[in-house]
Each structure stands twice: as structure tokens, then as C-alpha cells.
Nucleic acid binder design. Structure first.
Lengths: 207, 207
DNA sequence: CTAAAAACCGCCTATTCAGGTAGTTACATT
DNA sequence: AATGTAACTACCTGAATAGGCGGTTTTTAG
């Protein structure tokens, strides 16, 4: 039996879903709420397997609600339901722990399938949203900056907080040898001190 | 018309797909290769809309091949095809520019649907793989380290390579006031110099 | 109201760092 | 054989930094 909680402020939407879902044998809508706050006050969330969560809600926004829900029940599967495919919201909700992203235009059959997929360890998502997620995965660094092996080694040690002296011991160089490389690093990264170099190297995934 | 290139070392697999795809009206398999290297040598990749790419190939691995293919034709949609759901490979391929991830056990109908989805700007992916991708999105930082507003501001400025003096001007503090905060930052992050602090802050997403 | 803590400011000292200049060695190019 | 360049080593100087100690003011909590 899959226990479902619905959080959605539109009454008709909410009742429509309940009707669809309650009709399924292994589904049970154990509670429905108009807002995240109402849901938090009840003690139903810890019993839920799946939460259908609207994005645009009065009070706490759905994208924030996910985080709280997952703190109250880390095993629960939260599916966002929304009319908009707004990038920013998608990523915020996913970062905060949402598992899937459904459109409100979804058909009853698709809704049921989505919940089954989610409960079976999958992530129901429209292909368009999947593409957005995948695109954000692509390495677009291409920083064109080419560092030598020594330079990379030294940068890594700098990021660990090593001094020139300890780096020189690590790499069997003189302190001035270390300085030589660091000067070159500064030129290549167009920086002029350790912290900025480390920050740039980390941001550009050079180390 | 969707132009398709197949790169797969198993002859029977390759020919099976070609048969399925050529049968479709708007699909055209313009070339098939046994390895990435063979594909690179030909001049068909720039004409392709979709590439079906095996992961496990003789010579260059599919996960690396994606990168080269996308460099040759940045608009092409690369779909990985594989028997294994190995996490490491999935992420490597996706980072390198793959758009979707199909199982070799896929049915003809699903293959056709996947290619259509990919060509329409979606990302075909099995729900299980989607879940893995989504999970890697979740913010699991939870570094428990709580920095004050001033500390965060100062860390950001340090990452830009600012000196204590310039930070003090920026934040209308004395140099020693800046030092006060930095001392606290060092305690909280358990570090003892700027570079290490910046590295830790960036890695833990504190800034 | 009071105690404690957080948020500053100041000073001292030893160490570390950045930038400049200059020289050596080794290996590759022409 | 001449030239060049990358990879060091060496030294000098002034500036920046880390850490230790002590002080004041403002907030916060009991």
C-alpha cells in the first residue's frame, strides 16, 4: 500500500487527484492539505510514502517545503506538481530534495504511473525537464587554461593550506623553485595571491 | 528527417538497430561504425542529428567519445546505450555531453520513442537512471558550519584575492576588525590560512 | 539588572608572501 | 653550433599575514 499526502491549495485539483488515486487498489490518500504549514502541524508526514506537492502555495513556497518535509521524513518521495517549467524553481526544488517533477496537465494514467515509478526507486519527470537537468550537468568549464603537472600539484597543496616551505619539502624543490611555479600559476590564472588562485582553480575545476 | 549515426562494436546489435530505425519514415541511419576512432575519421558526424553510442567500445571508451563527438558537432544529440547502470560511467558520460541513457534491453518501440524525444529537446532516460541523476543533485552539504554574515562577506572577498586592508575599506571596519573575523573563520573551519579557508568554503558551498 | 557572549579595535612579533632581478642546467629546435 | 625555453635556484625588499594578548562596546540571555 502506498500512502499518499497531497499538498495543493486548489480545492478542485486536490479533490480530482484524490478521486483518481483512491480509485487505485494499492494507493491510499492519507491526508490532504492546503499549505505546507498545515501539513507540518499534522502528524501524517512521517507516515507518507509519497507527497504530491504544489509549487505555488500560500505561505511557504513548495520549493522550500520540500526541504522541511524531507527533514521530517527522509525516506519520503516528494513529487513537485506545477504548471510552470521555470528553470530556477525546478533546480531549487530538486536541490532541496524533490524526486520528480510533474505537470498539472498530466493525465490520470500518467499520474498513477508517475507515483508507481517514484515508489519503485525511479524519478518521474517530463523529457523536457530531464533535458534541463542533464544540460546543467554538462561540463562547460572549457577554461582553456593549461597548467603543468607541477603547477596542479602545487595548487592542490596551496588549497590544503601548505606554506611554500612545506610544499618545497613535499615536492623536493627549493622554496624558490616553488615560487617559480607559483609565479607562473599567477600569470596563467591572472591572479596575484594564493587565495585568489585557489578560488579560481576550484571554480574552474582545475584541481 | 532525423539523421542517425550508430557506433557499436557488436555487429548484430548494430544491424538490428539499423533495421528497426531505417524502417521508420522520418529516420535515416547515415552511417554505422565499430569504434569512435572510425567515426572520427569519416565526415559523417557533422551531418548527424542523433548518435547512438555504445559505452563499452574497443579503443576509445564511449564516455570519452561523447566529448570528441560534441566538439566536432556541438548540436548533435548523443544517446548512450549500455547494459550496465554503473553510476560512475553514467555521470562521466553525462558530464561529457551525453543527452540520454538507454538500456540495450530496450524494445524497438522504446528506441524509436527515445530518439524522437531526444530530437524534440527532451532527455530519454530510464526512471532509475533519472533517480541517480536527481539524487546527485540534492544538496547534501549539511556542513553544520554556521558562518555569520560578516564572515561570509569576508570569505567571499578573500576568494577574490583582497587583502585585509582592502576588505576593511569595503566593510567599513578596521584592519584588526577584519582580522578578528578571520580568526573566527579559521576556528570554525579548522584552518589556519586564507587559501585553505577559501578552499574549504568553496568545497562546502559556504560561499 | 547582571553576566556572558559577540563584535569590534589596537599592538607586537615572527613568519610568509609577492615581485623584481639574475644565474644555471638540460633538453629541444633550427 | 647557436638559440631558445622550460625548470629550476638564489637573493633582496617591502608588504601581508597569523597568532598571541589586552581592551571597549554592544547584544543577548537569564
Amino acid at each position: 500500500m502506498i500512502n499518499i499526502v497531497i499538498i495543493e491549495d486548489n480545492k478542485y485539483m486536490r479533490e480530482g487527484w484524490r478521486t483518481i488515486l483512491d480509485f487505485e487498489e494499492n494507493f491510499q490518500v492519507i491526508a490532504e492539505f492546503e499549505s505546507c504549514e498545515d501539513a507540518f502541524k499534522s502528524n501524517t508526514l512521517p507516515k507518507a510514502d509519497v507527497v504530491l506537492l504544489d509549487i505555488q502555495l500560500p505561505g511557504m513556497h513548495g520549493t522550500e517545503g520540500v526541504r522541511v518535509i524531507r527533514e521530517m521524513n527522509p525516506d519520503v518521495v516528494v513529487l513537485m506538481v506545477t504548471i510552470h517549467d521555470d528553470d530556477e524553481r525546478i533546480f531549487k526544488a530538486l536541490k532541496n530534495g524533490a524526486i520528480g517533477y510533474l505537470s498539472k496537465k498530466i493525465s490520470p494514467g500518467e499520474l498513477i504511473e508517475a507515483i508507481n515509478i517514484a515508489n519503485d526507486g525511479g524519478s518521474p519527470m517530463s523529457p523536457n525537464i530531464a533535458r534541463k537537468v542533464i544540460n546543467s550537468f554538462h561540463d562547460t568549464s572549457e577554461s582553456t587554461i593549461e597548467l603543468s603537472d607541477s603547477e596542479i600539484k602545487i595548487l592542490k597543496l596551496l588549497a590544503e593550506g601548505c606554506s611554500y616551505k612545506s610544499i618545497s619539502k613535499d615536492l623536493f624543490l627549493s622554496v624558490d623553485g616553488v615560487r617559480y611555479h607559483i609565479r607562473n600559476i599567477y600569470k596563467k590564472l591572472e591572479v596575484s595571491n594564493k587565495s585568489e588562485a585557489v578560488a579560481k582553480a576550484l571554480r574552474d575545476k582545475l584541481i
